[in-house]
Design a protein around this nucleic acid. Structure first.
Lengths: 121, 121
DNA sequence: TAGCCATTTCGATGTTCGTCTATGTTGACG
DNA sequence: CGTCAACATAGACGAACATCGAAATGGCTA
């Protein structure tokens, strides 16, 4: 049942998926709101365990991975689940349940959006 | 109160060097060490105030800005100084004192390094 | 139906983080 | 000298976080 919980990347209002979350960091000073939004992503990736989980999903064959495939990061399994939830809430990962297992994949346009953050090409 | 100044990233007692770290997140799963290193950068940018400060420096004319130019982010002056120190320790900014003022600039190769993190451009 | 397995959620605990006020240091200028 | 301005440091306090074990949820299979 884990649906879309909250996507800070896309602003509320139903549409707005096309709105880039943030301009390049070097283009102009960030406003407080832009900083709040972008910092949420960076913060989610600012934990070693979460970064490993994200990398495990992002580099997994087929673009997706089930929890059982990526649970070996040195912390307990409930902790893994907790971190995956954080990544989901930050809009970086999406999850889908198929039978017994839950599969995670990188949310589309996340990598492109973050790339744009770091400069115009 | 624990030790604050223990950064395995920075070898000797100054500021951390810009990390030459880390392959693309999507290329292969991160090791624990890579994750530790890269997460330090993300973590440093994971606070709205720090992200605004970084953006203010990165977008400032001449590539550098003195503290007096970027202190208006809604928190007290010691807090600004504290966050700038964090960014310095993460290897994202460098500082130089010239007369009364202290100038900050983005550490070279930081943006390129982070861009490489997000995919093979 | 019962049992089992993968995953999530819950409650508790120790630690880290962001912010403040107060004070210290450094350089410019009279 | 003495004083002022810019910036850094120190200590304290409350909020947020990471982590764990235990219990609950959802879905297979017999």
């Amino acid at each position: 049942m884990s649906n879309v919980e909250s996507l800070p990347l896309s602003v509320s209002g139903g549409e707005a998926a096309a709105a880039p979350c943030c301009p390049p960091l070097t283009e102009r000073p960030y406003s407080a709101e832009e900083a709040e939004t972008a910092a949420r992503m960076f913060k989610a990736l600012g934990d070693p365990v979460r970064l490993r989980l994200f990398s495990l999903v992002a580099s997994h064959a087929g673009g997706e991975a089930c929890v059982c495939d990526i649970s070996d990061v040195g912390v307990s399994q409930p902790t893994v689940s907790h971190h995956l939830k954080k990544l989901r809430e930050a809009g970086l990962l999406t999850s889908e349940r198929r039978g017994t297992w839950v599969y995670y994949r990188v949310a589309p346009s996340v990598l492109a959006g973050m790339g744009r953050l770091l400069g115009p090409r």
